[in-house]
Amino acid sequence: MSYGAISVGMGFGVWLPVLLAVLVLAGASEILFIGIVAAGGSPVAATVAGLLVNARHLPFGLAVSEVVGRGWRRVLGSHVLNDESLVFALGQRDAERSRAAFWACGLGILICWPLGALAGALLGTVIGDTDSFGLDAMFPAVLLALVLPQLRDARSGGTALAGAAIALVATPFLPAGLPVLLALLALIGLVRRPGAGVRKAGVREEPEEREEREEREEREEREEPKEEAR
């Protein structure tokens, strides 16, 4: 609902958030798309940024292909594959329950997300000046609440912070949409060094491994200003 209200608050018609909700069905990329266009960015930049954010669905699909199914089920199953249904599917022990959880969550979102967007958008048109209600703070807060649980370990947290810093430095100088893409430079630190992979939360480290990693992170911290200056 807040997504719909925010979109209308940014000056779009009710149709845009609802159309995105039905056809794209991936919250973060929809909010990003609307945010970039609202900031004066080109629809092309918004599409590219949205696609980049949604590229994660490819490894998602690789991870839970069994629960998605085959034939026509695969078509619908792919569409309802998202962060939430993935988490539900991964949370179950046996394949049967995993499939049931995936479909229940996926179909639930398929119905609720567009309806919520519509309700929010209609509400947004009634409210009028959404800024005085602080709705503009809702958008980053929504994303923050969704992303934070995945950034709790030092490594991904640090990389995300570096990316955010790059985007912030670049924003006054570059067309809307580009600073966000430029943030991907923060990944260079991960790509360049083999073995410096993203750590999954809850994976235990060996003491030597930990020392190595800390050294690496120190090095990267020294290198970071160079990357931002680019």
Binding site: L52, P140, L143, P179
Partner: peptide
């Protein structure tokens, strides 16, 4: 995650 962090910050 990096893209999302950049969007949040900006």
């Amino acid at each position: 995650l990096v893209l999302l962090a950049a969007v949040i910050a900006t």
